[in-house]
Computed example of a mutant assay.
Amino acid sequence: MSAYNLFRNTGPEGLSCAVPEERSVPRFVIAPEWEFAGKVESLRQMPLGFDDKAAATGVRFNGFYLFASFQKRARDSHRVL
């Protein structure tokens, strides 16, 4: 797996764009609609929603991979049983 630069859309949809570091960032990834979300070098670092097989296909055809990312929610430590 190659290292990816991640970009997060600032809208409520949870859309993310992964770009292999050796590729150019797509022209649609511009501020303020998109923000840099970091660099990842292994599958363990990828956010929820990232699919490595779909990423390989997306990069082969488009040069980038768009995906819906999800964040884990912390358990409510004050939950009443």
Rank of each mutant, 00 (worst) to 15 (best):
Asn62Glu: 14
Gln71His: 10
Ala55Gly: 05
Asp52Arg: 09
Gly63Asp: 07
Met46Thr: 04
Lys53Gln: 14
Leu66Tyr: 05
Phe50Ile: 04
Lys72Ile: 11
Ala56Cys: 07
Gly63Thr: 13
Gly49Phe: 02
Gly49Cys: 01
Ala54Tyr: 04
Phe70His: 09
Asp76Val: 08
Gln71Lys: 13
Ser69Lys: 02
Val80Ile: 06
Ser77Arg: 07
Gln71Ala: 06
Asp51His: 10
Asp52Leu: 08
Arg75Thr: 09
Asn62His: 11
Ala56Thr: 07
Gln71Pro: 01
Asp51Ser: 14
Phe70Ile: 14
Asp52Ser: 11
Val59Ser: 05
Lys72Asp: 07
Phe70Met: 15
Ser77Glu: 14
His78Pro: 00
Arg75Ser: 07
Ala68Tyr: 04
Ala68Leu: 15
Gly63Tyr: 10
Leu66Met: 15
Tyr65Asn: 03
Val59Thr: 06
Asp52Pro: 02
Phe64Ile: 05
Gln71Gly: 13
Asp51Ile: 07
Pro47Ala: 15
Lys53Glu: 15
Ser69Gly: 05
Met46Arg: 01
Ser69Ile: 00
Ser77Lys: 11
Val80Trp: 01
His78Arg: 13
Gly58Val: 00
Ala54Lys: 11
Asp52Lys: 10
Thr57Met: 11
Leu66Asn: 06
Arg60Ile: 04
Lys72Glu: 11
Phe67Gln: 01
Asp52Met: 09
Ser69Pro: 00
Phe70Asn: 12
His78Ala: 09
Phe67Glu: 02
Tyr65Met: 05
Gly49Lys: 03
Pro47His: 12
Leu48Ala: 11
Phe50Tyr: 10
Phe61Pro: 00
Arg75Pro: 11
Phe64Lys: 05
Val59Leu: 10
Phe61Val: 08
Asp51Asn: 08
Asp51Pro: 00
Tyr65Asp: 02
Leu48Tyr: 08
Lys53Met: 14
Ala68Phe: 04
Gly63Met: 09
Arg73Met: 10
Pro47Glu: 10
Met46Ala: 06
Ala68Glu: 09
Val80Met: 04
Asn62Gln: 13
Phe67Ser: 00
Phe64Glu: 03
Gly58Phe: 02
Phe64Trp: 14
Gly49Thr: 01
Phe61Leu: 14
Ala54Thr: 06
